[in-house]
Design a protein around this nucleic acid. Structure first.
Length: 489
RNA sequence: GGUCGGUUAACCGAGUGGCUAGGUAGCGGUCUGCAAAACCGUUUACGGCGGUUCGAAUCCGCCACCGACCUCCA
């Protein structure tokens, strides 16, 4: 299997040619959400970024196992390891069983992801379903001397680990500096060092989510689940690990430390991190309370939103920027994305109605090559889109008569748009399927005929009245050179 | 304070040494009974100061501003 895909590896800080560990198989692990509230715009970024990667690798005929976890336990409020489990906190707040909270927000997350047309991962494991695997991992770490137990809790010994390996290589940290820069937090007394992190926490009496273990009735630390589940489903070593840039430290460093200590080798070949979505120049995050949920975007129901934005507008908005750049939220940018997407979709509709000529003035092969080059260059979706818009201009020029396309070219161009727009970028036409298309078509034909009669009689008042009233009803008429086109707004 | 990244035209957003990115919004034109759409043309760029080079948005240095991480976060 061959490819020219270069991806930016956060570990080496360079673009590297992607070579999978096992020729035709790819193992991909992406950090999923902690399910304690509705998904917001920020959550759409990694989902869409790695959906694009998943789709492209699949298109390249790799057999991809895409694992995205659901964090439904053990996620503490702060790294003092004395905080409150987010899910339990929410459960008390909403008077629900913790697992009810998990189910509720897992469902809404999945619904939102389907709306965004992201493909389901191959496996969506839940941390709560892998407590045994996590405990096994802890046992290995204790045996090998990388973890220690105190008062029923188990911590990772970073000082010991750092003697043999380099903790901080992904995020460019040095342990000694971390020690001096770590803020003084309460409740760290029992750890040997402030930077050691919890693998297992003994539950306080009021803590509901708890599991028996050799050390105490308790629950696993956050970083552990990803190590345990990625190893279980993708093996000791796998190809790509993805997630948001904000997870690089400490989460991904801890993952590397846990897996490397337990297995004696580094687990991940390529680390990929998507950048953040900002609002007013600041990161959008639940903890900063400046987020807009996806449901709010889809409905327009939020004070800062001037209108509703469809799921595909959001998807297009995100694909318009490279995944390693920040995207600043604004109504203007979203409206521009909406218009651009409409233009693209309209052109594809036009393409399917195009009549071939005897000759062609376009080289589809070159265009296709440029599209692949864009994706191969670290998934450069904005460049890919700029090439597709070249195609859009060409399609419209054929209608206009200034360009021509022959039958093979037409088929190739249709194929190209199909492949890149729908299959790889994962966009879809949102206008179809509304109402009774067939009947509407028949009725529109009658109305357009009647209007043509009045136009032939130069009865502009009537023809304009028909057009205006249709517009008020949400249908726009366009008088073309030969015939009339109409579309829903 | 430490580490890292960013600053591109009205807005968004690509681009790593010479070649029109693209989208949205303006403006002018073609087409049209008018309009819309489309097409053609077009206006504001590379934070500042220095350096390297025949040539820099792109490389180097300094400065300014913004942000991310250093607590949970996608």
């Amino acid at each position: 299997m061959q490819n020219n895909l270069f991806i930016y590896n956060s570990l080496s800080k360079k673009k590297e040619l992607f070579k999978p560990l096992h020729s035709s198989f790819v193992g991909l692990y992406v950090c999923g959400p902690t399910v304690y509230s509705d998904a917001h715009l920020g959550h759409a970024r990694p989902s869409i970024t790695f959906d694009l990667l998943f789709r492209y690798l699949t298109h390249l005929e790799y057999k991809v196992r895409y694992v995205r976890n659901i964090t439904d336990v053990g996620h503490l409020e702060n790294d003092a390891d004395e905080g409150e489990d987010k899910i339990e906190k929410k459960a008390r707040f909403e008077h629900l069983e913790p697992m009810e909270v998990v189910q509720k927000y897992m469902n809404s997350f999945n619904k939102n992801m389907e709306q965004l047309n992201t493909l389901h991962p191959s496996i969506e494991p839940r941390a709560s379903g892998h407590v045994i695997e996590q405990q096994e991992l802890i046992k290995i770490l204790i045996e090998k001397g990388y973890a220690y137990e105190i008062n029923g809790s188990v911590y990772f010994d970073l000082l010991k680990y750092n003697k043999e390996y380099h903790y901080g290589k992904l995020s460019g940290r040095v342990l000694e500096e971390l020690q001096s820069n770590t803020r003084a937090l309460d409740g760290q007394d029992e750890k040997r060092n402030s930077f050691d992190f919890a693998l297992w926490k003994k539950a306080t009496p009021e803590h509901i989510m708890r599991w028996p273990s050799p050390w105490s009735d308790g629950f696993p630390g956050w970083h552990l689940e990803c190590s345990a589940m990625s190893t279980k489903y993708l093996g000791d070593e796998f190809d790509i690990h993805g997630g948001g840039m904000d997870l690089q430290f400490p989460h991904h460093e801890c993952e590397i430390a846990q897996s490397t200590a337990a297995l004696g080798k580094e687990p991940v070949k390529y680390w990929m991190h998507n950048n953040m979505i900002t609002i007013n120049g600041q990161k959008m995050a639940r903890s900063l309370d400046n987020f807009i949920t996806l449901d709010q975007l889809f409905s327009g129901n939020h004070p800062v939103l001037q209108q509703a934005y469809s799921p595909m507008t959001i998807r297009f908005f995100i694909l318009r920027a490279h995944y390693r750049s920040t995207i600043d939220f604004s109504n203007e940018a979203l409206q521009a994305a909406e218009k651009g997407l409409q233009k693209l979709m309209k052109a594809i509709e036009t393409l399917n109605k195009l009549k071939p000529s005897a000759s062609s003035t376009i080289d589809v092969t070159t265009l296709e090559k440029k599209c692949y080059e864009a994706l191969d260059d670290d998934l450069n979706s904005p460049i890919l889109l700029s090439h597709l818009f070249e195609g859009v201009k060409f399609i419209n020029s054929v209608v206009d008569g200034s360009e021509k396309i022959d039958d093979p070219g037409l088929e190739a161009l249709k194929d190209l748009f199909n492949t890149f727009v729908f299959e790889i970028l994962g966009l879809k036409d949102e206008t179809t399927g509304k109402g009774d298309e067939k009947l509407t078509g028949e009725l529109m034909k009658i109305i357009v005929d009647l209007r043509q009669d009045s136009k032939n009689n130069k009865d502009w008042a009537t023809s304009d009245k028909i057009r205006t009233n249709l517009k008020n009803a949400g249908i726009e008429l366009k008088d073309l050179k030969d015939g009339v086109d109409w579309e829903r707004e």
